[in-house]
Computed example of a mutant assay.
Amino acid sequence: MTVSRWLHSVAEGLASGVAQAGVLDANPVPRSWRHVTKLDPEPAKRLPLCYPAYLAHTDAVSVGGSTGVTPTTTEDTFRLLEFASPPAIHEPSAPTHVTDRTLSESAFLAVPEVLNGTSEALVGTLGEGIAALREDLIAARLDRHLPGWLSGRLTPHVAPLLSAHVLNRALFEAYIIQNPESAAAREAGVTAADVLSPTEARHRALAADAHLESEVVYVEYSGTYGGEAATEVIEAVAPELNWARLWYGGGLRTCEQVRAVRDAGADAVVVGDVFHEIAEAETDLYRRLEGAFDGEPTLDRIETWLDDAVAVADTAAAQYLSTTPVDAPVHRARTLLATSLLIRRTLDPVLAADASPARAARNLDAAIDDESLSRSFLSALAEGTQENGSGLPVTHLPVR
């Protein structure tokens, strides 16, 4: 083959590959995901009372955290998400956080790979997770469903195959952690010396995309907005990704910040801290509301009170919603904050054992007209306020 024919053949192959890439996108992470909400199962980080209504404006929910997280708190978070519409991703920080329930109720199991951390963060943690999946979770499942004599013989051979199947369905998130003061950095061994320049980030992202085949490259500032430094990294990384989605997370509170990150090339933004802060604001507002009315407040009266007592645009509710595609985020925040206060007021008699959960659920259903807050959700919420109730795990909600 002459050089000219060889060059022509290569050019045709490249053109064909580019054309196919434009049509066929095999990455299981939907390209349409533009906004992801991060939920931390840590007991201290609660969800807003009206969380299904807030989450109706996000594309997906990612469940994961590092401080005080247990299998129980993780499963409780997934129980809450039964009443929310977006698909859920489970991003465990320890192998024991993966359970039968989390596997069955999550759209994806996400495996973090820290590109600028220690080798333990990239390889050791993954190896530990695979071992736990194979030797604990899957082995226990086989023991439950097979006779003892058969389980002992089959488990050593079947468990590796089943664990490989689970991993084949998993997402791999290649993290570039840029805030060395964050909990994520401490977990991964990322120090100030490990913060990457745009060029270094580009090189790591190329490896993640072309060799590791990570479904997501995640530029993470963890609680702090990265500003110009973050957008420079995103601009360096975005053009190099053929397979992976590019996500940014860290300190997002305004539509302007979200626009800057997306304009730089991020496929999706991840918002977490400000979402949990809504629950704290609800508790504070409820304390301020007590004694503000004679008689029973209505939704309209509470909204009017909010207008007089609070700068709604400055609340965590409005800030979170401003990062989503929702129209009129301040107006929506005002309605949802008022709804949460009305729910809390209606549940107070149940907490005091002066009313039944069924009665509270009927009152809520009659007072609240929001399609994202279903009757089943309101009933489960009322039941959950009772000790040993069968409803929602209210330890994660600002009720008590």
Rank of each mutant, 00 (worst) to 15 (best):
M1A: 13
W6Y: 05
L7K: 07
L7E: 14
H8A: 14
G13P: 00
Q20H: 10
A21N: 03
P28N: 12
W33E: 07
P43T: 05
R46C: 09
H57M: 01
V63M: 11
S66F: 05
D76S: 14
L81G: 09
P87D: 15
A88S: 15
S93F: 03
S93C: 09
T96G: 07
S104I: 06
E105A: 06
F108T: 03
L109V: 05
N116Q: 00
T118M: 08
T125A: 15
I130F: 13
L137W: 09
R141G: 04
L146M: 10
S163R: 13
S163D: 12
E173V: 14
S182R: 01
T191M: 06
T191L: 04
A192Q: 14
L196G: 08
L196W: 09
L196C: 13
P198D: 04
T199H: 11
D209E: 11
D209Q: 02
D209H: 05
D209S: 11
Y218W: 03
E220W: 03
Y221N: 02
G226V: 02
A229F: 08
I234A: 08
E235F: 00
P239K: 05
W247E: 04
A260D: 12
D263E: 15
A268N: 07
V274P: 05
H276T: 06
I278L: 03
T283K: 00
T283E: 12
R288C: 02
L289F: 11
E290D: 06
G291F: 01
I302R: 05
D307C: 13
A311P: 00
A316G: 02
Q319K: 15
L321T: 00
R332W: 00
T339P: 03
I343H: 08
L351W: 11
A353H: 11
P357G: 07
I368G: 04
D370A: 11
S374G: 14
F377N: 04
L378R: 15
L381T: 06
L381G: 12
Q386F: 02
N388L: 12
G389Y: 09
H396M: 13
